[in-house]
Every structure is written in C-alpha cells, then in structure tokens.
Amino acid sequence: MEDVTYKSFRYICKKYGADVMSTEFISSEALIRDVNKTMRKMTLFEFDRPIAIQIYGANIDSMVEAAKLAETFQPNYIDINFGCPMKKIAGKGAGSGLLRDIPKMIEMASQIVKAVNLPVTAKTRVGWDDNDKPIVEVSERLQDVGIQMLALHGRTRQQLYTGEADWEMIGKVKSNPRFKIPLIGNGDINGPEKAKKARDISGVDGLMIGRGAIGRPWIFREIKHYFQTGKMLPPPTVPEIVEVIKEQMEQSLSWKEYEKQAIWEMRRHFARYFPGVPDFRELRIALLRAEEHAHVLEILDQIVDKYKDTPVDYTNMSLK
C-alpha cells in the first residue's frame, strides 16, 4: 500500500470504522540514512491510533536500527513487512523475498524484538510458490521468537495479486494447536459477504483490508454492520461520495507542502471511486489530469450535477 496509506487516506478509513492502522511501509536503508520523505511517512496523528510503523529491508542490522528509530516516533507497535511481492523489493531479499531464507527471516524478527520495547508484529504470505508453502512452520517460529501478532496474505509470492487468496491455508495456521498469537487474514476482501466467508473459512481473529478500501473507505463500516446484523448497508450516493473525496483532499492539502503534490496523491483514489457509474470515463480522465484544487472541485460538482440520482454498483469492483 505504498503511496496509499498516508495521512489523508488513513483519516478517512478511521472515520469509517478501521480499527487498527499502519503507515506505508518504510525502507530500513532509507530510514537510517535520514531520507526526508521516509521520515515524514512516520509522522503520526492522534486519529491514527492504534497504529503501526511498518518497516522492510534485507539487512538485519539495518532493520534493527530502523526499528529503534521508528520507536522514537511512538507508534503503538512495530510491524515487519515479510510480505511485499514486488520484484524491486522481493528480488533484493526483502519483503516476501525472505520466504526464500526462512532462517534469516526468523533471526531478523528475533533481533528486532530484542531491540525495541514496543510489541513487534509481522506480515507475510503463505509461501514462495505452489511447491513451497512453509507458513505453518514459519508462523510457529515467528511466534517463538516474540512476534506478537501475524498478518497473513493468502497468496504465494509468485502469485503476486493473481488468482485467489487461499483462506483454507490461512485456516491451517489458525487451527495449529501450537499457534497462540492473534492471526489476521488478508486477501481479496472487497465487501461484507466476502469478509464473512473468509472469516468463517479461516477462523481468523481479524481481517486486514488494503486494496479493497481504495475507492471504498466505508467498507469497514459496511463489514461491521453486516457482521452485527446480517444486513447490507445501502451504498453511498454519488453526492455522498463526492463529500468524502473533498474531505480526503482537504486532509491531503493540509499535509502536503504544495497543492500539486496533494492532488497527485489523490489520483490513485480518484481512479477507484464511482464504480459502476455509466459513461464515466471522460470525467474520470478529467479528475486524473487535474492539477489544481479548484479544477478538481469544479469536476466534482459536474459529477454531482450529472449523477446525483445514479446508483453506485460495487458488485464487480476490481481490486487491481
């Protein structure tokens, strides 16, 4: 979720029911070099809490130093990313690349746990590929060196984001009698019904939602309501969505140094709002090309005028 889970998006997700937050993942090497952009990623706000600062890297010493630095920003816990599948990360032995060197993964986790006073958690995947899924053993070993909660994405590294998340494999970790720490499941949750199915299959203690919240930050509220009542909340109207976008954009403008940076930050979100709205391509392109706040507001007003009575359909909303 790099370049997604920054201040403005976290603010909106929290408003709509997200319980626990995480920063964008932060390079340990950049952090110990005091790279300005990386340091800014660790700035936390009261609305965030409870929140983790998430770090990644391939060098154990650098990761230990990064964890110590992250601790000074006073997050509620430190999270180690052993799950990112992208080539520029995994190919360098970080993120899910550590699934190819389990002893190093365990040693890294152990050293970080010993180095900080905060709880340390981890996120990973079920394995490297279909022939290498050691997650039941790996989860035990992470627990045994002091990891206090594990988030598990139900795909292998080789899958990237293709195919389907394997919630039965996640369930095998949860049902392991030796595994005692909380397990958070992740993968493909794009609505309340899928969230319930995933929880029922796996028995996890909680659900992690990433891509499913982009363009649908109220998904947390929808899932909670469904779990409590068995009923679906009606989707927001186009005017309601526009108000959410405006609020998210105001948060971005208050944080970024330059207006254009705030608008650029919003583009990934513009692309995902308004699913299922017919003949929307021209206005979506206009949003993605806008570079000034006033121009974005003008386009949003056009959207309300044209689609104020049009239903929004999340049925086939893609997570890509």
Rank of each mutant, 00 (worst) to 15 (best):
D3A: 03
T5I: 04
Y6S: 09
F9D: 05
C13A: 09
D19F: 08
V20C: 04
V20D: 07
M39R: 07
T43N: 13
D48K: 03
R49M: 05
A52I: 02
I53L: 05
N59K: 12
S62D: 14
S62G: 00
A66Q: 10
A66C: 06
T72N: 06
F73C: 00
F73S: 00
G91E: 11
E107K: 15
Q111E: 15
I112F: 05
I112Y: 07
I112E: 03
L118Q: 08
D132N: 15
I135V: 12
D144H: 14
I147D: 02
L150P: 02
A151I: 04
R155Y: 09
R157A: 01
A165P: 00
A165K: 10
I170T: 12
V173R: 09
S175K: 15
R178Q: 14
K180T: 15
P182T: 09
G185N: 07
P192A: 11
P192G: 09
E193N: 09
A195R: 11
A195H: 11
A198T: 03
D200A: 11
G203Q: 12
V204Q: 03
D205T: 09
I209T: 01
G210S: 14
G212Q: 00
F220C: 05
E222T: 05
I223D: 03
Q228W: 00
T229N: 08
T229G: 07
P234V: 08
E243M: 11
E250A: 11
Q251Y: 15
K256T: 01
Y258K: 04
I263Y: 04
E265N: 12
H269P: 04
F274T: 08
L283V: 11
A290T: 11
E291F: 02
L300H: 08
D301M: 01
Q302L: 10
K306R: 15
V312M: 06
